[in-house]
């Protein structure tokens, strides 16, 4: 007899102490029911959520990551860390998309300590979303090990992203619209592509090349990249002396 086990996702939740964690508490006090998939990590501020936390959770095969903070302009802290959470989540979604993780698996919501109902509703909705996506890799149609390699590359890039963000990607207006506009703009797209995503791709190529000599075709199929992009990056990498062509195959340059 075939046993069909129901898929029960695991969602890692980073909740700020002052608002969302309180909202989760209130949902409990009010006995609002929601699916049992969330595993909560309490932080003082949603702005404390590091890009690395997100990548780490997915690398350890979380099926979803949830970040919950105070409503914008209601942050408990003077520097309004929830705006940073917003910026970080928008950056993380781009990167996740690039390495093949469905960005829908990452969710950011504002829930106040008084919104127990809302917390439960958000949990019901996000749980069903993650459930419909299936285990990590399923909706992506990608082997988890490949996603993990991408997440590893992304993690390596986090210090660089932090520097770049500060130098080049500063959001001019600290409002919800300001953030959405900035991160939705064509300028940002181009800049982010150049500053971060290209770097990420090159780092993934290098990751692959370092394991064994591979061909350009193998790279583009292995990393699901456009062959033209691969060619561009290979040229750049070769010019930087990071790798060398050995006939049809590529090898990492030994230092």
């Amino acid at each position: 007899m075939a046993i069909t086990t129901e898929f029960k996702p695991v969602i890692i939740g980073f909740l700020c102490n002052w608002c969302c964690y309180g909202g989760a508490d209130l949902a409990g006090v009010s006995r609002f029911q929601y699916p049992p998939y969330l595993r909560v990590i309490r932080l003082m501020c949603s702005g404390r959520v590091d890009l690395e936390f997100i990548f780490r959770a997915f690398a350890k095969k979380a099926d979803g990551v949830f970040i919950g903070g105070c409503h914008l302009n209601d942050c408990h802290y003077n520097p309004e860390g929830n705006y940073d959470a917003l910026g970080n989540s928008l950056i993380a979604r781009r990167i996740l998309g690039q390495i093949g993780v469905n960005p829908e698996r990452l969710r950011l919501e504002w829930v106040s300590a008084g919104e127990g109902t809302r917390f439960a509703e958000v949990m019901i909705e996000f749980s069903s979303k993650v459930k419909s996506l299936g285990p990590l890799g399923a909706s992506e149609g990608v082997d988890v090990a490949d996603l993990q390699a991408g997440l590893e590359a992304a993690t390596q890039l986090v210090p660089y992203i932090k520097l770049v963000e500060r130098e080049r990607l500063r959001v001019p207006v600290r409002t919800d619209e300001g953030y959405r506009e900035f991160f939705g703009s064509a300028d940002f797209d181009a800049l982010f592509q150049e500053l971060v995503l290209d770097k990420l791709t090159m780092s993934r190529i290098m990751g692959l090349v370092r394991t064994k000599p591979v061909s350009a075709r193998e790279i583009s199929s292995g990393l699901r990249l456009d062959p033209a992009d691969v060619a561009r990056h290979l040229n750049d990498l070769a010019r930087q002396g990071m790798l060398r062509f050995d006939g049809d195959e590529l090898q990492a340059a030994t230092v």
Binding site: M44, G47, R48, L51, H76, Y77, G81, D84, P159
Partner: peptide, 14 residues
Amino acid sequence: CKGDGLCNAKCPTG
């Protein structure tokens, strides 16, 4: 310091 930890998340070198 109020302990929000924003700086922690922004520091490129940990």
